[in-house]
């Protein structure tokens, strides 16, 4: 019995036990503190699945040997651009949503290819370079958002040029996925079936991909580049493939995120998004060298639930100031730090 327990612990992993346990404790604290437990849990579900695709974007990048895709903002701004254009064109409903995706995908693929080529030139220090690619592309897009000739008054500043900081997708395709086949259990508890299906639907081809010959090639290229070369694999190419997929998923991910959230956030909002995604997948048990779809699902569930319920609790216990944002930063960066040090001593 004891043996079996130990085995399970080993499979699940200590970090997940600790974080899972902590999350459970917080869950029990919710009713004690008099917070709306049912609503918060329902919110968690939505938060989990609106973030899942962005976390999924880390998988091809990790498996192709590049490590965490800290340059995820690159994909995100492609998605934002697609979104802004779809709104500019006045797209609504499913058509508007798909327009956003179809505009952003070729863009993301192109930029992802260039980005992958760049990272091939800096093998060994991808993490640093990727972070700065992310930062600079966000800064560059700040200019684009301001200067680009958008005319639709729903998305531009009331005065002057440029896009607003936050653009609502209300009336266009707000919660189009969430409301698809929505199951309403009580007043406060809803299950966004469409969103869940869509997210899982994207996980599935990813899972298939890593079971195909090309997918295996990408993985082998990431695990041992010299070995890959010896069996005739062009590692530079597999890394670019990984980056293109990752960037495209980033683009789709932000559009899905926005439809559920209700807003597109332009300017500096994408700056730090890669870090929480990295934290989520690391919690899920991925290392900087290997990640799987199950890591994505487990990690997103744990991380987003933790964030969703920890913040109101923190605000309840320490009501002064804007503590929630600080908590979020501490938790997500702390987790990255922890997971990266753990990844280090596996060598």
């Amino acid at each position: 019995m004891n043996e079996k327990l130990k085995l399970y612990c080993k499979i699940i992993g200590l970090p997940r036990l600790i974080i899972g346990g902590f999350t459970l404790v917080l869950c029990f604290m919710l009713p004690v503190l008099g917070l709306q437990t049912d609503m918060l849990l329902s919110q968690s579900i939505t938060r989990i699945f609106m973030n899942m695709i962005l976390v999924l974007a880390m998988v091809p990048s990790i498996n192709s040997g590049i490590g965490m895709n800290y340059g995820l903002p690159l994909g995100i701004v492609c998605g934002l651009l697609g979104g802004a254009l779809s709104l500019e064109l006045g797209g609504t409903g499913g058509v508007g949503f798909l327009t956003a995706i179809f505009i952003s995908l070729p863009l993301a693929a192109l930029l992802g290819w260039g980005y992958g080529a760049l990272l091939n030139k800096v093998k060994g220090s991808e993490g640093m370079i990727a972070t700065y690619v992310g930062f600079s592309v966000v800064a560059f897009m700040d200019i684009v958002w301001l200067m680009a000739p958008f005319h639709n008054s729903a998305i531009t500043w009331p005065m002057g040029n440029g896009l607003r900081n936050i653009v609502s997708v209300e009336g266009a395709y707000e919660k189009i996925l969430d409301y698809f086949l929505l199951i309403k259990i009580t007043e406060n508890v809803e299950i966004p079936t469409g969103l869940i299906l869509f997210s899982l639907f994207l996980c599935w081809p990813m899972w298939m991909f890593f079971r195909s010959r090309l997918g295996v090639r990408v993985c082998v290229g990431g695990e041992n580049p010299v070995y890959a070369k010896a069996i005739g694999i062009n590692v530079n190419r597999t890394r670019i493939i990984g980056m293109v997929i990752s960037t495209c998923l980033g683009a789709v991910g932000i559009i899905v995120y926005a439809q559920s959230y209700g807003f597109y956030q332009f300017y500096n909002a994408p700056l730090m998004m890669a870090f929480s995604c990295a934290a989520a997948i690391l919690i899920g048990g991925a290392t900087v060298k290997k990640a799987s779809i199950s890591n994505v699902i487990v990690g997103t569930v744990l991380f987003q639930t933790l964030l969703t319920i920890a913040l109101p609790i923190a605000n309840e216990i320490m009501p002064e100031g804007n503590l929630s944002e600080i908590m979020r930063i501490i938790i997500s960066n702390g987790v990255i730090l922890y997971a990266l040090t753990k990844a280090g001593d596996k060598k």
Partner: peptide
């Protein structure tokens, strides 16, 4: 370094080269 992927299973190490080169095991 070159011959094996140490972190991978025996069966993958044996079959991956043939899979990549001759599209076997698919």
């Amino acid at each position: 370094g070159v011959g094996l992927v140490l972190n991978n299973s025996i069966e993958n190490n044996i079959t991956v080269p043939a899979m990549q080169v001759y599209k076997k095991y698919l």
